[in-house]
Simulated assay, not measured.
Amino acid sequence: MQELQINIIPGSSLEAERNETGKVLHYYNTTYYIDRQGDIKLRYRKVNLWGPEKQAVSAGHEHIVIDTEEFGKIGLLICWDLAFPEAFRELVKLGARYIFIPTLWRSPDCGEKGLAYNKQSEHIFINSTIATRAFEQNACIVFCNTGGPDADVYFGCSQITLPFKGPIVKFNGKEQVVVTEVELGSILEDAEEVWNLREELASPNWYPAKQ
């Protein structure tokens, strides 16, 4: 932001949409890309809502990518969006190279039934799904989850994950700050040469195939 001369994607917050008289029409779970001058360059309203969230929050309606001078094209998602490959596809079709996902995801979220099967259920969900998204979407996935004093609840799994490499940094449990330099180089281009994912997405005959 302006004082610190940093770009920032904060965790999501509740955003009210009001009419001309100030009456609240909708609440959205929203995150932002804020540049070094303190300007909001991208606002994303969460499209895929977690079950209980639907009782209080409206779903957003679109996925947007911003083309930054420093990093190229980036897109934003929030938390439970991770479970929907379609959300990632929309961003990749718009050219996103980085996809950032601020998150509040806890071990008990799988419920008593899930915990009865495996207390590490959500850890497995997060780690396997992020790796899959990075490979299947040919993108750099930056996932930032809540840490806290109770590692059995606030398990983290924050990570930066790339195709071919998998996670290049990952940490769990307690709150911490990690400074990492990400140099994509030609990795996304090399992955595209191998798998042609972005070319396929851009094709007018993209799945389901037109007859």
Rank of each mutant, 00 (worst) to 15 (best):
R36A: 13
Y32W: 15
Q55K: 12
L42Q: 15
Y32F: 15
H26W: 06
R43D: 05
I66H: 10
H26N: 14
V24P: 08
G38N: 13
S13L: 11
E53T: 14
D35H: 05
G38I: 15
Y27A: 01
D67L: 03
G75N: 06
S13M: 14
K41I: 06
N19D: 15
A56E: 03
E20M: 10
E69Y: 12
N29D: 14
G60P: 07
E62T: 12
D67W: 01
N48E: 09
I40P: 03
T21V: 13
L49G: 02
Q37F: 11
K23N: 10
Y32C: 10
Y27C: 01
V47W: 03
I40A: 12
Y44E: 01
E15Q: 08
D39G: 03
A16T: 08
N48G: 05
Y44P: 00
Q55V: 07
T31C: 11
R36P: 01
G75H: 02
S58G: 04
E17I: 13
K46D: 09
Q55E: 12
S13R: 15
T68K: 09
V24M: 07
D35M: 11
F71E: 06
L49K: 01
P52K: 07
G60R: 02
V24Y: 04
G51D: 10
Y44T: 00
K73H: 03
D39K: 15
L25N: 09
Y27H: 11
K73G: 04
Q37P: 00
H63F: 15
F71N: 07
R43H: 02
P52W: 13
G22L: 10
K73I: 06
E20C: 02
H63N: 11
E15G: 00
D35S: 09
E15W: 02
E15I: 02
D67I: 03
N29Q: 11
F71A: 10
T30H: 08
K41V: 07
G72C: 04
N19I: 05
E62R: 09
A59M: 08
G72L: 04
D39E: 15
D35A: 13
